[in-house]
Structures are given as structure tokens and as C-alpha cells.
Amino acid sequence: MDKEQLNTFILLLQNVRKQPSRIFDLGLIVKEPGSELQADEIFNEVRKIVDIEQIIYDETAIDEKVFEKIIKAFEGNKWIFLEIKKDISSPLLNQLKHLANYNSFQLLDYRGKDVFETKMPESSRVIVFAERDFIENKITYPHFYTLFGPVLSLE
């Protein structure tokens, strides 16, 4: 893996805030078809640079548990490494879109509030990891790529 590319990717995620709202981007790491690299290896490399929590979104994952984990990671000022292994459900897509647009989570009837809104802290970021084939063939949301700013492609 090109560590310099990974460092640039992390650096841009850390520093770049889009004008005019000063919003941080979500990052996407794409594993290309020929790549031998595994998600865990990438996660371990990123973990050497920033404090990060891994969340695997697969067949066993329940949306509300995923939300809880993300909110807890934010409360601990941690980054999130979200590995996508099944098509994104509507509730998760809603939260990812809200994170991309406003850097915040918006949930109804959560933690005793009619509208629960929590901001992603300045020191947290979200990196989504997925395989290219999976994105192209399994993810049904047609604007998946537009959720992200920097994209790191692993050849």
C-alpha cells in the first residue's frame, strides 16, 4: 500500500473544510478488483495515524446498533472506519447523507428526544471502506460516490 497516498488522504480529511459552511468531508477507501489488501490491514494502518473505531456493516448489523456505535465514537472524539458489506439501508443512508451535508446525525425519538441532533466533533471523521465491485453492483443508491470528498483507490 502506498503510505504516502494514505497520509495525504488522512491529511486532507483532517484539514479541508468546504466553504461556505466549513463542513468536513466523509472519506471513501475503495478496494479495486486486483488488490490483495484486506480491510483490517487498512484499518490497522489508519489506526497508527488516528484514534479510530471499526464498524462492520454486514448481514448481522442492526441499524440502531450502528448508530449507537457511531454516536459513541463521536462522543469519544474518535474517527470511524465503516466497512460496507451489504447494501445500505434507508435509515443508514439518511444518516450518512446528513453527515455529509451537515456533519451531524439527526434521529427521531432517540434518547428521549423528539428530534435528536448530534454534531460530529471537529476531531472525528468518517471513512467508509468498500470494494469497487460491491459499490458498482450491490449498492442500489445511485449517488453513493457523491457522499464523499477524498477517495483513496487501493490498486
Binding site: 484539514n15 468531508d25 449517488h143
Partner: peptide, 23 residues
């Protein structure tokens, strides 16, 4: 070679503008 279309947005410009300060 791509099923999804990725239209450009003004965010792409905004990103370059901000990165131009730091990188």
C-alpha cells in the same frame, strides 16, 4: 467502465480552494 454517474458539484471547487491553503 462505471455504472454510477458522478456529476461534479460546487463542493469539488470548494475542496480544491480549501486544500490550496493547507497543501
Amino acid at each position: 467502465g462505471r455504472r454510477q454517474r458522478i456529476p461534479l458539484t460546487l463542493d469539488d471547487m470548494a475542496r480544491v480552494a480549501d486544500a490550496l491553503i493547507y497543501n
